[in-house]
Design a binder for these strands. Sequence first.
DNA 1: GTTTGTGCAAATCATTTGCACCGCG
DNA 2: CGCGGTGCAAATGATTTGCACAAAC
Lengths: 159, 159
Amino acid sequence: MSLEEQSSEDTKKEMLAFEKYLKDKGLKITNQRLLVAEKIFSSHNHFTAEGLLDELKDNKDRISKATIYRILSIMVEAGLLEEHDFGKDYKYYEHIIGHEHHDHIICVQCGRIVEFIDEQIETLQRNAAAKNGFTITGHSLNIYASCQKFEVCEFNKNK
Amino acid sequence: MSLEEQSSEDTKKEMLAFEKYLKDKGLKITNQRLLVAEKIFSSHNHFTAEGLLDELKDNKDRISKATIYRILSIMVEAGLLEEHDFGKDYKYYEHIIGHEHHDHIICVQCGRIVEFIDEQIETLQRNAAAKNGFTITGHSLNIYASCQKFEVCEFNKNK
DNA sequence: GTTTGTGCAAATCATTTGCACCGCG
DNA sequence: CGCGGTGCAAATGATTTGCACAAAC
């Protein structure tokens, strides 16, 4: 099985999970919801509501901004999407597979977003919280850094 | 020297630093700027623009919201204040002394904000960035947690 | 006196919401 | 059918900005 086929397999599985979630919640399966979900599941990039809207406008299919926001919020609720704040005044979303947690490095030059995970950091965080009498419910670690790759600057593309 | 006197000593030093910054930048020393700076330097809590406005309204002195925002932005620029995003739709500010870096634990129950610093985490972050070819320019680590002190819930006071 | 600061109200901008109509189940 | 979904435009809420007047230097 090629990588492409594997990827489309994953997409199918996720589409089914989404449809199941909708059914279980008594929500309807509409064209807009399917289109948005397919677009999201077929990519692993971090994206914004605006960016998604643009991509879907290219298609013949016309989806309103309000609907995009409404669908994003359902998918976050469903645990299929994660919402991030990278210090801009709009939110980023990220397609979650499984639920593997990770942190982000955001390039202050080109806006590139790199994911990483460090189990030691995770453990130290839990300890720090415990030491202060807290039980962690979540966390967000963003490292702002410079990747020194000016030539591939995508800073404003990613909106 | 008592703690109070010490604290007021610090405040004076910071006021001088602020005034020096204003002069160096060719900015004017106005009543509003002095009032806002004094209020901020005399406390070590995390606060919001709205909260600050409320506190200053209690006084006879009337400062407009626009001016508050303008002064906050100068003080951030001057390195006297740090801006934080704790996942709300408004920003938090924090009075910096020296520049000691620290991270935050935010209670999802009562909104209490606790500061902590873990040198091991700092080091691991630098390593993680380096491993990915980045040079850190800054970072933000927020741990969302539950402090189980419902009785002291200040969640909505802090706005 | 000039230049910069302030207050007010209007503008922004991402996101949300009310409402009339539409389409899934 | 009937209720949830959608599109549109208007509302929201934090922050910003234009402008006329006021204060600092």
